[in-house]
């Protein structure tokens, strides 16, 4: 947070000069947010890049005081979430709901620099893969709350700010998300249910509703 405040101050005195630091600091997290929301690397690349560019243009047009007061982490996250939402809407318009198998493939990406995955055991990769796929089966609102809170690591207050929802709602959505993820993971790990008969993607949570 402190580095964010310092960065906002630098941006206020010159957006062009300080913007490369924004890119260096935030590109991985914005890409991760977009990837876990959308499940597609190419889409995530475009959304993360677009989010950075839009942030740059917005800051260039804002008065200095407004730039200085920016809370970069939730602000950049909210731009990314909105772009991802628009993209998903476009996809939904032209494509039937995606099947589980391609999502499993697309959702998993090994860390290229070893920072986020010091151990790359097969078990761990498998867990990542299944978790990424399970995330994509949460409702968009719950998924956004979970991704911001636990993949990106924002505080509940920051998630509330980024998503424009009350903190109480965020807490409930995160709680619900964790519970649904656990159920999805258990279900996916059962051999008889696993890849041969995935739950219908159009209503991914039907089974969970029944469990409740």
């Amino acid at each position: 947070m402190d580095s964010d405040t310092a960065l906002a101050a630098r941006l206020a005195s010159g957006v062009e000069a300080a913007f490369p630091a924004v890119v260096a600091e935030h590109q991985d997290r914005l890409y991760s947010i977009a990837l876990r929301l959308l499940g597609d690397r190419r889409d995530a690349e475009e959304v993360a890049q677009d989010a950075l560019v839009r942030a740059f243009r917005a800051m260039r047009d804002y008065p200095h005081e407004r730039v200085a007061a920016l809370r970069l982490r939730p602000w950049l996250a909210s731009i990314t979430i909105n772009l991802a939402r628009n993209r998903r809407r476009r996809h939904d318009d032209r494509q039937p709901p995606a099947a589980l198998e391609p999502l499993l493939d697309a959702g998993f990406e090994p860390a290229s620099d070893g920072r986020s995955a010091p151990s790359t055991s097969a078990d761990r990769r498998e867990t990542q893969r299944e978790l990424a796929a399970a995330l994509l089966r949460l409702s968009p609102a719950v998924r956004a709350a979970i991704v911001l809170r636990h993949v990106d690591g924002l505080s509940v207050a920051e998630v509330a700010e980024a998503l424009g929802r009350p903190e109480g709602t965020i807490k409930a959505q995160v709680h619900r998300g964790l519970r649904e993820l656990r159920t999805l993971l258990v279900t996916a790990s059962e051999p008889s249910v696993s890849h041969r008969s995935p739950m219908p993607a159009a209503r991914p949570l039907a089974a969970l509703e029944a469990v409740r």
């Binding site: 991985d28 914005l30 890409y31 690349e45 890049q49 920072r115 993949v151 990106d152 790990s189």
Partner: peptide
């Protein structure tokens, strides 16, 4: 491998952070 506890699940979610391909940041610049 299934993260049953909240802590394990949260740790597994943190693990889903990945490095952006270089084209993302450079493309934005």
């Amino acid at each position: 491998t299934i993260p049953f506890t909240d802590q394990a699940l949260e740790a597994a979610l943190r693990d889903l952070r990945v490095a952006a391909p270089p084209s993302v940041g450079f493309g934005a610049l």
